[in-house]
Structure formats: C-alpha cells, structure tokens
Simulated scan of single mutants.
Amino acid sequence: MSTDVLNFSAGPAMLPHSVIERLRDTLDEWDGKSASVIEISHRDKSFIEVVERAEASLKRILGMDDEWQVLFLGGGATGQFAGVPLNLLQPGRSAGYIDTGQWGGKAIQEARKFGDIVVTASAKDDGYAKLPDLALVDIDPNWAYLHFCANETVDGTQYGTIAQTAHSVPLVADCSSELLTRVMPLDRFAAFYGGAQKNVGPAGVTIVCVRKELLGSPQAICPAVWDWTQQGANDSALNTPPVYAILASGFVFEWVEEHGGVPAAAARAAEKSTLLYETIDRIPLYSNDRATRSKTNIVFRLTTEELEKQFLKEAEANGMIGLKGHRAVGGCRASVYLAMPMEGVQTLVAFMEDFAQRNG
C-alpha cells in the first residue's frame, strides 16, 4: 500500500512496508530459480523450506514447543467453524460455545451441523457490548471443548485476559483479529486459529495451531482438506496450499521477531487503542459503549448518521480509508492491526479533533 494512505479496514489490512518490499523482490525470481515464487511447485524443495521457516518462526514468537502442530490452510476462519467440530467433536459428545457476537454466533451456527452444541453464555443480553466472563460461565467437564471468539471484529469487543475456566475443558478460540497482538497463554488452549488477512498477511491462508495430542480422531465425514491430522502429516500440503500468502505470513513472523516479538506488539496495540479510546471518551461528538473494548477494532459512533457520512468522506479525502463500520452495526471502526504505525493513529486522532472542532 502507498505510504500516503492509511488503511484502517478490518481486513484485508496493512502489511509492514518492509514486508511488501521483500515480497516485491520474490515476483521476478525466487531462490535462484528463473521463476517467481508464485510459479514454483508447492512440492519444490525451496517452497517446502518456506513452510518450515514460517512454522519455526511462528512457534518462536508464540512460545510453542513441539507439542503443537501448526497448519497453513485455506478457507478462512469461517472454514474452521466447521473444521473445529469435524476434528475435535466425536459422535456422542457435546461441545460448549460462547455467543460473543457476530463471529461467535456464526461459529455456533456452523458447528451445529456437525454435533451437539451447547451455548453456555451469550453477550446478547448486553447488546454484544460486554463479553461473558470466562471464569464464570457454566462448564460441563465432559465437553469435548469450549469455543469462543477472542476478539469480535464487528462488535469491537475483546477478552482483555483469557481467564482460567472452572474445569479443564480444552479451550478453542477464533483469534483472527488479535493474532500476534496478544501474548498467548498457551497453557489454557487446546487449539486456536485465525485468518491471516488482519494481522498476519494477505487474504488466502488460515493459521491453525492445535495440540498434537488432540489429533487423530476426526469425524468420519470430515473432508480430507479439513482433516487436521492429514494436513499435519502432509506439512499443510495435502492439496495445493496458498503459496504466496504463506510466504508473506512467514515474512511477517520474522518482522515481528525483529521488532521485539509478540510482547512488544501487544504493548504497541495497547498504546494505539488507548490513544483512540481517550480521544473518543474526551470529545462529546464521539461515543463507544463497549464494556470489554477491543485493542484492535475500535468502533465508535458520531452524534448523527449524517455526520458519520461526512466524517468518512473527509477521512478518505485525507488518506484514511476503511473507517466505515460493519454493515450489521453501522457507525465507524478503526482497525489498528499489527502493521498500523502509531503515527497513523496519531494522524487519525488529529483528524478527529479537527472534525469535532468544525462540527461539534
């Protein structure tokens, strides 16, 4: 993306400029071959090394040991709404789900096609403005797992901490819009997954991290491409994987390592979101009613829809795109993912202050 444009879209989102430059260099020739990286076979040794390097880098920055299997798949996080029950929910068992919002709800709808799903808690009664406390939700110790969305992109909510639940039921989470911006408490998770197009890379690849001890018992109806055991045994290449998106993701993992790792990325996420929320709370023209606020997807309203339309139009004219809220909730939304620099947030805040002075 041009350095003159700030992309606040919920996804696909910005990539670090240095990563884009590295990707540009791969388009003419890759690894000494007379072919682009997008032209070589996924069976080629040089691409197998790309996958191995990406996996090793991700494991390092998240602190995962060899008990974890990392998969690079297609289908998006939405595909894993089916992949989770197909791999972890055996016939005759139940799984618990928390209705956290738009994406948590979609995960529930999809999972019900493949087994007995119990919705143990919901944010609906609070207008999806406050997430149910993980430490307080009712849990059946016999569940195969408990699923939730850690950060709701549409609703702008997020679990500030992943609390210890009442029983040792495996936790499974959709982490699409917070991956690499939170230090993951791995001891509390059995699996987590996310689409890359927010914090990690371009659209096309989905990252699945699962404890190896949970592999090996997919449902009989599980398609081979969704079978985590088969994909793991084939190094995520049972079928042709999203080659270029995996390469880009690997470059982002290395960029994270070079910039202080996930702890530093989490600190930057907190700093960026804090500045935005302080601005929203300070200026009467803006409002945010979320009790459990997201650090990556900051939703806000203006006092009238007419002003929101004017705000969005002027913001785009000033080089800030993707600020329109999701069609399901309206308003505005600033997604400040991994690659959004603090300077970009400061530019948005300065515009918000100026807009308020002229229209407050």
Rank of each mutant, 00 (worst) to 15 (best):
M1P: 06
T3R: 07
P12T: 01
M14V: 03
H17K: 05
L23M: 11
R24E: 14
D28H: 03
E29D: 08
D31L: 00
E39F: 00
S41A: 11
E55S: 05
R60F: 09
L62T: 13
M64A: 07
D65Q: 02
F72Y: 09
A77N: 04
G79W: 01
V84C: 03
P85Q: 06
N87M: 00
L89Q: 07
R93M: 13
A95K: 10
R112K: 09
R112V: 06
R112A: 05
D126V: 00
G127V: 06
Y128I: 05
Y128P: 09
A129W: 04
A129M: 07
L136C: 05
D140M: 02
W143D: 06
W143C: 04
C149R: 10
I162D: 07
P170M: 01
L179V: 06
T181N: 09
M184V: 13
F189D: 01
F192N: 08
Y193N: 13
K198W: 07
G201C: 11
P202H: 01
G204A: 01
I207S: 12
V208Q: 03
V210W: 03
R211S: 05
L215H: 04
L215E: 00
I221P: 02
A224T: 12
V225G: 06
W226A: 02
N234C: 04
N234L: 02
P241Q: 02
P241I: 02
V243D: 05
V243L: 08
L247F: 13
F251E: 15
F253I: 00
E254D: 12
W255V: 03
E257C: 00
H259C: 00
V262G: 09
A270W: 12
L276Y: 04
Y277D: 12
R282A: 14
I283P: 13
P284F: 10
T292K: 04
K295E: 15
N297M: 13
N297V: 11
R301N: 12
E305Y: 13
E306P: 00
L307E: 14
Q310H: 12
Q310S: 15
E314I: 09
E316I: 01
A317V: 10
L323H: 05
K324G: 15
G325P: 09
A339M: 10
M340S: 14
M342E: 14
V345T: 11
T347Q: 14
F351Q: 04
N359P: 03
G360V: 02
